[in-house]
C-alpha cells in the first residue's frame, strides 16, 4: 500500500459507512419483505404471497388509491413540466444574461422555497388561498407544487449551463444563426441532461410532498401521500406496504434513469 492511500484511510470509517447504509435500508427492506406476507396481520409471517399487491388494485380501497395515484402522477407531471420550463428560461437569463441589477434578487427568489421551512410555506399558502377566496382542490395543489418545484428543477439546469462554454452559441451566431436558433439548435440540445435531471428531481419532489399538499388540498382530492397518511394513521396495513414497495421500485427506476442520463453526458 502506498503512502497516498494510507493518509486517506481511517480505521472504522468503512464500518460506519456500512452502519449508515444498514440504517438507511433496514426499514425499507423490512417493509418490502412484509409486503409479500400472506397474513392480514402485519406482525405474523404466514408465507409468501402476492395477495396484497392484488388488493391494491382490486381491494376495497382500490378506488381511493387509484384516484389518488392519478392525481399524484398528473400533478407531478404538469408541475414538473412547467417548473422545468420556467427554470430553464430563468437559468438562461441568469447564466447567459450578463450582469444586471435584479440578478441576485432573482436567484434569492428562486431559492426561497428551499429556505422557508415546509410547514411555514404550507401555512402561508393556506392563508393566501383562503384570503383570496380560492376554492381548494386540484388546482390549488397544482399551483403550490409548481412553485416549490422550481428551485429543484433550477439547480441541475444552472449547474449544467455553467459547464457549457458560450463559444458554441457564438460560433453558431457567427454563422448567421439568430439568437432564437442558437438557443434552440445549440444550447438546448447541450442542456438536455441538465433539463432531464431537473425534471426528474421536480417530479419526485412533487410526488413525495405531504405537508404542503395536506394544507392546500380540497374536498375529496387526495394525492398518494395524503391517502397513505389517512390509512397509516390507523395502523400500518399490508396493502400500504405493497404500495410503498411499488413506489420504492418506481423511485429506484427514476433515480437509475437520471443516473444513466448523467453518465451518457456527451460533453465531458
Amino acid at each position: 500500500m502506498s503512502a497516498k492511500t494510507d493518509v486517506k484511510n481511517y480505521t472504522g470509517f468503512r464500518t460506519l459507512t456500512f452502519v449508515c447504509l444498514f440504517i438507511l435500508y433496514a426499514p425499507l427492506v423490512v417493509v418490502t419483505i412484509y409486503s409479500f406476507n400472506a397474513s392480514p396481520s402485519i406482525t405474523v409471517w404466514e408465507g409468501f404471497s402476492l395477495r396484497w399487491y392484488g388488493d391494491v388494485f382490486t381491494g376495497p380501497e382500490s378506488g381511493k388509491f387509484k384516484a389518488a395515484a392519478i392525481n399524484s402522477f398528473s400533478i407531478a407531471l404538469i408541475a414538473a413540466t412547467l417548473a422545468t420550463i420556467i427554470a430553464t428560461s430563468a437559468a438562461t437569463a441568469i447564466v447567459r444574461g450578463g450582469i444586471f441589477k435584479t440578478r441576485t434578487l432573482s436567484l434569492g427568489l428562486i431559492s426561497l422555497p428551499l429556505m422557508v421551512p415546509e410547514i411555514v410555506l404550507a401555512v402561508a399558502t393556506l392563508i393566501f388561498f383562503n384570503a383570496v377566496g380560492f376554492t381548494r382542490g386540484y388546482m390549488t395543489i397544482l399551483v403550490a407544487h409548481i412553485a416549490f418545484c422550481i428551485p429543484f428543477a433550477y439547480l441541475p439546469i444552472q449547474a449544467r449551463m455553467q459547464g457549457i462554454e458560450d463559444t458554441y452559441e457564438q460560433a453558431a451566431m457567427d454563422l448567421y444563426a439568430t439568437k432564437a436558433q442558437a438557443f434552440r439548435r445549440v444550447l438546448l440540445p447541450l442542456m438536455m441532461p441538465g433539463i432531464i435531471s431537473g425534471f426528474l428531481l421536480a417530479f419526485i419532489v412533487s410526488l413525495d410532498d405531504f405537508i404542503i399538499t395536506n394544507f392546500v388540498k380540497g374536498a375529496g382530492v387526495e394525492t398518494l401521500p395524503t391517502a397513505i397518511f389517512g390509512s397509516v394513521k390507523q395502523g400500518l396495513k399490508p396493502n400500504i406496504m405493497a404500495i410503498s414497495t411499488m413506489l420504492l421500485a418506481l423511485s429506484i427506476v427514476m433515480v437509475t434513469l437520471s443516473y444513466v442520463v448523467s453518465k451518457t453526458d456527451n460533453t465531458k
Binding site: A67, I70, N71, F73, S74, L77, I78, T81, T84, I85, Y138, R184, L188, I195, F199
Partner: peptide, 22 residues
C-alpha cells in the same frame, strides 16, 4: 423541443382525466 411538448400533451390529457370525474 419535442420531448417537452410531448410531456405537456400527456400532462394535459391526465389533467382532463382527473377533472373529468366531476
Amino acid at each position: 423541443m419535442k420531448p417537452i411538448k410531448r410531456m405537456t400533451q400527456t400532462a394535459m390529457a391526465l389533467a382532463l382525466m382527473a377533472s373529468g370525474a366531476a
